[in-house]
């Protein structure tokens, strides 16, 4: 089969590797769509410590079951129609947890000490076919396309973020960064009971999109934003991963409010916050990492029409154009770029 392969950091090619066969508890998926994430850039650049090269990246994927291992259960997920049989259309939750470390055993699987993931430590979805554990497959309703289904993974990260943030209805929000994740978080906030949602980004095209998706205010300058919301915001979410942007955003947290770090900074990055403000204004600072019991809810949010997928799915390219697609993502062109490995 054809696959996008990263042999070593910086060495990216589309080549031919052997077709996968399923282990007893696995399915083989013919990939319908697979989204490119910032993590894929880190894998290509070699600054992701978990990766085992060579690797086929791709963890935002959906497709059709074409082979079923000998020990796969009859039904998975909800209801009697969730059969992972040949021909079933599925989305894949890519995170693989060990099940026996302290964090797995206390209900924090996303913090697993032996964390591994499809498209990071094992071959992923930028290929014609991929094997996945059946327990990670979610059977899709008819009304979701593979491209929409490949968006479930990023939406499930945002849903976990909202579960962690636990906002009150009527809260005001500031979302810093209007890329894919910012635009998804914006939609969850607007449709989840926020009273006013502001979005900050330097890219005015992205801000236009944010306005179309229901942002009440958009700005390129945080000081101007604070002239309009004098007391700041109940919930401020950083989706940039840039320490300086976070320091600026922290100034916009209302007294008693929450500041969530959602964007991925480099492990070496440091930011400077006022401990006095955290104390005196009773500010909660929290993080949100990947997916935790949020994949099913994300699927339901998309199939229920709560998430506008069209606004986010801007680009789809064939597998052979993988390198060009990575470069587009690097330059910040469009919003979500996906690969359609089987045309």
């Amino acid at each position: 089969m054809r696959a996008a392969i990263i042999d070593t950091p910086g060495k990216i090619r589309v080549g031919t590797i052997s077709d996968p066969t399923p282990k007893p508890d696995e399915l083989v998926i013919q990939v319908g769509a697979c989204g490119i994430c910032g993590t894929d850039l880190h894998i290509a650049d070699g600054d992701s410590p978990l990766v085992r090269y060579p690797v086929v990246p791709g963890h935002e994927l959906a497709g059709e079951v074409v082979a079923v291992g000998s020990n796969v259960p009859q039904t998975i997920g909800t209801g009697g129609n969730m059969k992972p049989t040949v021909g079933a259309r599925v989305a894949i939750e890519p995170n693989l947890y060990c099940g026996y470390c302290e964090f797995c055993r206390t209900g924090h699987e996303n913090l697993c000490l032996n964390y591994s993931a499809i498209g990071v430590t094992v071959n992923g979805g930028f290929a014609e076919y991929v094997t996945v554990p059946a327990s990670k497959a979610y059977v899709l309703p008819e009304n979701i396309s593979f491209q929409e289904a490949a968006l479930i993974e990023p939406v499930s990260c945002a849903v976990h973020g909202m579960h962690s943030l636990n906002p009150k209805s009527g809260d005001t929000f500031l979302i810093v960064g209007a890329g894919t994740m910012g635009l998804i978080l914006l939609q969850l906030a607007v449709r989840g009971g926020a009273s006013r949602v502001a979005v900050l980004d330097l890219n005015t095209q992205r801000l236009t999109r944010a306005e179309q998706l229901g942002a009440h205010r958009t700005q390129t300058d945080i000081h101007k934003l604070l002239e309009e919301e004098l007391l700041g915001f109940d919930c401020v979410i950083d989706v940039t991963g840039v320490a300086r942007a976070m320091e600026g955003a922290f100034a916009a947290v209302k007294r008693g409010g929450k500041f969530m770090v959602f964007g991925v900074a480099s492990p070496e990055a440091r930011m400077s916050l006022s401990p006095f403000r955290i104390y005196n204004d009773e500010i909660t600072v929290l993080g949100s990492m990947a997916v935790l019991f949020s994949f099913g809810p994300a699927l339901d949010l998309i199939s229920g029409g709560v998430i506008d997928t069209k606004a986010v799915l801007t680009t789809a390219l064939p597998l052979e154009d993988f390198s060009d697609a990575l470069n587009m993502v690097r330059k910040g062109e469009g919003v979500k770029t996906q690969i359609l490995p089987n045309g």
């Binding site: 939750e93 019991f293 099913g296």
Partner: peptide
């Protein structure tokens, strides 16, 4: 538990 049903996958 079976690890694959809706309840298991919801924690």
């Amino acid at each position: 538990p079976d690890g694959v049903c809706e309840q298991c996958r919801s924690g």
